[in-house]
């Protein structure tokens, strides 16, 4: 139990500093690590990701849920704290220096280089999540409808999640 909590803390502290481009860009690595440690398989990962999206708050709560699955409350808190702390310390330290380097050419070059990598990583997250959550024409249609709904309408994403959940609960996606 203590070993599990310690492992969670180490892995999520490492992931904190790898999370360039935000939480969505990290999802492929998170899924890979969770599978390799035997924490959750890809299908459970997609379920936990969906639960986290249905909750309020920053889009990093799948970290809390993985910690919960592995080691209960202690795991949830350890994973969350470990995921927040390294990046927070870095932000706190660098915030005072930001004015000095925000206009620097190297800063813009780093950002310009990271942007397409981030796009590819978020696309990778979409591919992996769709692969794990689409099991037939019904679920494929729900995923496409949610994507189209977000891109083409002004509907709040929570409605689109609710629609998917309602269609699923009705048993018509099987």
């Amino acid at each position: 139990m203590i070993a599990a909590v310690a492992t969670l803390a180490v892995v999520f502290a490492y992931l904190s500093l790898l999370a360039v481009g935000g939480a969505n860009a990290l999802l492929p690595e998170l899924q890979r690590q969770a599978a390799s440690f035997g924490w959750v398989d890809p299908r459970q990962f997609a379920d936990l990701f969906a639960l986290a999206q249905a909750a309020p708050g920053p889009n990093m709560l799948i970290v809390t849920l993985i910690g919960w699955r592995v080691a209960g409350l202690a795991g949830a808190l350890a994973a969350t704290a470990a995921f927040v702390l390294p990046a927070a310390l870095l932000t706190y330290t660098v915030a005072g220096l930001w004015q000095r380097f925000r206009e620097a050419p190297w800063r813009k070059r780093v950002q310009a280089g990271l942007t397409p990598v981030t796009v590819g990583l978020v696309m990778g997250a979409a591919v992996l999540l769709c692969r794990a959550s689409i099991h037939g024409p019904g679920t494929a249609l729900v995923a496409l409808a949610a994507a189209a709904g977000l891109l083409a309408t002004r509907l709040h994403p929570l409605w689109l999640l609710g629609l998917g959940a309602a269609l699923g609960a009705g048993g018509i996606l099987q």
Binding site: N24, A46, L51, V122, I134, A143, A146, L150, G168, A169
Partner: peptide
């Protein structure tokens, strides 16, 4: 089944974010 529908919708939302 409900989670299955929710997960498919959540995946679709990430797809839309990626395309955007």
């Amino acid at each position: 089944h409900m989670l299955g529908g929710l997960a498919a919708a959540a995946s679709g939302l990430v797809l839309a974010t990626a395309l955007r």
